Amino acid sequence: MTQDRRTFGAETTADDVLDGIDLSDKLALVTGGASGLGTETARALAARGAGIVIAARNVEKGEEAAQTIRDAVEGASVEVIALDLASLDSIRSAAQAFLATHDRLDLLVNNAGVMACPPLKTADGFEMQFGTNHLGHFLFTNLIASALIAAAPSRIVNLSSRGHHRDTVHFEDLHFAERDYDKWQSYGQSKTANILFTVGLDARLKDKGVRAYAVHPGGIVTNLGRHLNDDDVKFLMAQMQKNSGGNAALKSIPQGAATSCYAATAPELEGQGAVYLEDCHVAAVDDENMAGGVRSYALDPDTAEKLWAVSEDLVGDRFAY
């Protein structure tokens, strides 16, 4: 029996979300598809018939994930391209490689990211979390946007996080040149940027049939936490329990991938865009609740336009649609 979609929530899995949805004529590209949520998102989409492109920094791991999907889904079409979001040269090469063989793309899931790393710089000198999580996806998405437009109606899903509650975007010091580096503030800034990017994308592309969504996948143990030590994990769990009134629970990877798959395919989202989703529903704007919701500063269209202009300057490209 098909699950009542109105009951979707924190325990819903990617397969639940996609039950009854036919993606046999669709192509999906998942960044960070070599592990964790990315692999599960790609597998679940492939199980409904979608062709899959995994974009991964480590191509060998990407190929291993691709084979895992092929083993799980009979007849699955999965290919891998190299993409290092911490290098503008790699991003441009990846976009060129994708467009050389594909002129249409139905679903783009910008899943890759880095969380709470030590103070590091990208190949181009950007602060690592802002540079990877936002600027990398900003450039890659815009470079392949022609394929999304060609396949319209199509969708872009940007993985954000409840971590956006931690901070806004500091335009006066994006890269912590003048202030002390704080890995959680940096992560929060990058996750707010993911939502603002979603707002900017949707404003530019909705008239061309491309809609953009930001999602919070939930608390999940994945390779995203590779920079975390035991104290960091204890801190995060304590924060989750505090904010939830003691009812917080980690999600499984299939549960964590559900909201991404929901944003990418849910028929009930037709006509909507520039929204933030959590637990397979559109979240309310809430500037007080630490346990859920989206902060109003992350959806502000004027701030989104400011971020777009700054991002174009930083990557050295202009994008018009």
Rank of each mutant, 00 (worst) to 15 (best):
Q272Y: 07
T41Y: 05
H165K: 15
I52T: 01
A72W: 10
A44F: 01
D89M: 11
L18D: 02
M1T: 06
G51E: 09
G292V: 03
P301Q: 12
T198S: 02
D231S: 13
F197S: 01
R57L: 09
A238V: 01
I54E: 00
V210M: 06
I52F: 15
D202H: 14
T265R: 10
N194M: 15
A283Q: 14
N111S: 07
E172S: 05
Q241I: 09
L99T: 13
A28R: 09
G136M: 01
K306S: 06
D279K: 14
H164F: 02
R92Q: 12
V109R: 02
A56Y: 03
V114R: 10
S146N: 12
S93L: 13
E60W: 04
N289M: 04
E127A: 00
V80C: 01
I156S: 05
D286F: 13
A304I: 03
G273E: 13
Q189D: 00
V17D: 10
A304T: 11
L174N: 04
G271A: 13
R204K: 12
D182V: 05
L88I: 15
L224C: 04
V275R: 06
G75Q: 12
D231Y: 01
V157R: 04
K183P: 00
H175Y: 03
N247V: 11
L250M: 14
F140S: 02
T222C: 07
F319H: 06
A55S: 10
L88F: 12
A10M: 02
L148P: 02
E305D: 14
E278K: 11
L307K: 00
R211M: 09
I156T: 13
L250Y: 07
M237G: 07
L85Y: 01
M128D: 11
N158I: 06
D173K: 03
Q272M: 13
M115Q: 10
K306E: 09
L143Q: 11
L23K: 00
T13Q: 05
A100L: 10
A177Q: 11
V315W: 07
F138Y: 10
T101H: 11
A47L: 08
V285Y: 00
E305S: 15
V285R: 13
N58G: 06
N110A: 14
I52A: 09
A76C: 12
E288R: 13
N110P: 01
D207T: 07
A44C: 12
E11V: 14
C117Y: 09
F197L: 05
A14D: 04
A193I: 04
A112N: 00
Q241T: 08
D286M: 07
T265Q: 09
G292S: 14
D25S: 15
N243C: 15
I54D: 03
M240E: 10
R92H: 05
L224Q: 04
D180W: 05
H175R: 03
L99N: 02
L105W: 12
G75D: 07
P254L: 12
Q255G: 06
E268Y: 10
G20H: 03
T39P: 03
N133P: 00
E63C: 09
S260F: 03
A274I: 10
A116V: 01
K234Q: 08
N194G: 13
L299H: 11
A284L: 15
